[in-house]
Design a protein around this nucleic acid. Structure first.
Lengths: 339, 339
DNA sequence: TTGTAGGCGTTATCAA
DNA sequence: TTGATAACGCCTACAA
């Protein structure tokens, strides 16, 4: 049942190649100066024997690991899934393994997962933070493990980060609705402690401020479908003269649609709708959804690259990358009413 | 910049507690018989020092790892995302780390990823196989690493597995459409080499066979949105008398909807639609989508548990778990026409 | 029940 | 440029 072929080690290679284990090690790690003669000779034996270095031993002795931890606040949200796919792609190309964790929007779990990453041994961590404060992450940085903050950036944390310009993104969407002639535009936002939620609300408010007589109508959800549904219901119950909705998150947009369908409200005839994130279903809905699109997959790819850069060059200056969003105008926001 | 606090090891604990490193090791690993007196004494020192065992050393010496590899064919598909969340949850509870890989429906990449898992050191692998043959996976099993096949089960592979009853699932959906009185029911399936695709087609065919005069109308897509779109277009172009569609995958269902919207075909008035997987958007669509629901999250949870069982008991009999699906009837398939 | 000591597979240091 | 050797941190015979 069990495998009784003994594991092939540097010793086996060394013996067969007639060199020392040190030389074999040097060939594996390429770097050192080994005569190209010996190098190819050893490499040949490595191939013949099908030798594969033991990573645990390598890690133990050298302290180096090609492993990155990815900790997201909600891996079920398609936004993160797409980002994750981008990360996976970059890491795989670079020969790094990806350890995945889900903090589930829970600071306690997040903390445990980070600790688990440290125990497991990672060269760096990509993190969509649950809390807005940097302090919980300091111990990780103190341990010499770099963090790359993605999407949600804790305020006082000095780390590399990648995000979108949330204020402008939301503002642009709100302005579009304003320019279509809408007077009463409701905003469904997320929890204040999440930076993206906070900033998108700010963008919405900024847009309204630029246009007189437009009062903010705001309801905050939990970034989940049910939260969007409930927030929409609440707004509809409290106001009967709203003609447009801006929803600050993908799943909440689905919740809002559910509420509109239930209430037999027609989109865009009765209410214009702009959502967040260009998800697979956006073009399958009737009418197709107008959205603020984030470059999710690319965010992931870039995030991984930034982190790998940091791992290679710990003393480089910190980079804060901000990607642009795109307002994709489809039919859910209706045509021009007044200009 | 760098951390100059030396790492705390068993030796530090041993010295401070006035015991040998062997005793410390025994306390860490709980199992052995250490007097409860000594045990609590050592534990106290461990807590005081904040000692955390080095997993690389543990792995190297003992050969044991609490790490599982998860390799999916398409991590961007929300079906897998949901399964993944279930797996993550179970593994995290059990103190296992999750290494994630994406084979992207490519057998070559799948092979590389499996090799990477072996190099990295995993106690087991959860796999949604790209190919339908078991042979590519034999080397992993030969290395003593158990595989748990999920969703797609290679034909000739003797491993634990968890899946749904794909034949019955599709058959049930097709029968529902038949019972509603539909005569021409089109089926959009997936690539034949994927077991789920193959079996769902079989279920559709079985349903038709039970009812005379119903000819199969089949188009195969690639399990992606664009494939569903194209397949729908093809069917619509070739037939003008179809009154119902059964689509065998979640993203292809979105593609079909896109095609229907574009062609101004009304659901369910002109065409009744049944899709696969109860995804977040199903209830946000107008009309809400009738679907064959798979217990995705639970599949993941159970998959992880099965694998951990296998890791603990390598010689237990093989388990093939088949979960039931549920036909959730909403409005997209229309009401009863004829019975 | 507890301690001693050797080794897991690799790499870093030092010497040749 | 190459080799001998110790050490990374832990576990496990074996001895006491």
């Amino acid at each position: 049942m069990t495998n009784n072929l003994k594991r092939i080690t540097v010793h086996d290679v060394a013996k067969k190649a007639g060199v020392s284990t040190a030389t074999v090690s040097r060939v594996i790690n390429d770097n050192d100066a080994v005569s190209s003669e010996l190098k190819s000779q050893v490499q040949k034996v490595i191939d013949e024997l099908g030798y594969r270095p033991n990573k645990a031993a390598h890690h133990l002795r050298s302290g180096k690991v090609k492993r990155v931890g990815v900790l997201f606040a909600d891996i079920r949200n398609p936004f993160f899934t797409s980002v994750l796919a981008g990360i996976e792609n970059s890491l795989h190309e670079a020969g790094y393994a990806l350890i995945l964790g889900n903090s589930n929007e829970d600071a306690r779990i997040e903390n445990m997962q980070l600790q688990a990453f440290l125990d497991e041994g990672v060269a760096g961590i990509i993190l969509s933070a649950v809390t807005n404060s940097g302090s919980p992450y300091q111990q990780v940085l103190d341990a010499g493990i770099p963090i790359l903050a993605i999407d949600r950036i804790p305020g006082n944390l000095k780390v590399d980060s990648i995000s979108i310009d949330n204020i402008t993104a939301a503002k642009q969407a709100a302005l579009h609705l304003i320019n279509l002639g809408h007077q009463k535009i409701a905003f469904i936002g997320g929890p204040e402690h999440i930076s993206t939620a906070h900033l998108r609300k700010k963008g919405y408010l900024e847009a309204l401020e630029e246009h007189p007589n437009r009062k903010p109508i705001i309801e905050l959800g939990d970034f989940r479908q049910s939260g969007g549904y409930q927030a929409t219901k609440n707004i509809l119950a409290a106001h009967d003269d709203i003609s447009a909705f801006l929803v600050a998150n993908n799943l909440m947009t689905l919740g809002a649609l559910q509420a509109f369908n239930e209430t037999k409200i027609l989109i865009p005839e009765q209410i214009a709708l702009v959502g967040f994130d260009d998800m697979p279903w956006a073009t399958s809905l009737q009418p197709p959804l107008t959205v603020v699109a984030q470059p999710t997959y690319d965010m992931g790819k870039i995030a991984a690259r930034l982190l790998l850069d940091r791992i290679k060059n710990p003393d480089n200056p910190i980079q804060q990358v901000i990607l642009e969003t795109q307002l994709i105008i489809r039919e859910s926001c209706g045509g021009l009413r007044t200009v």
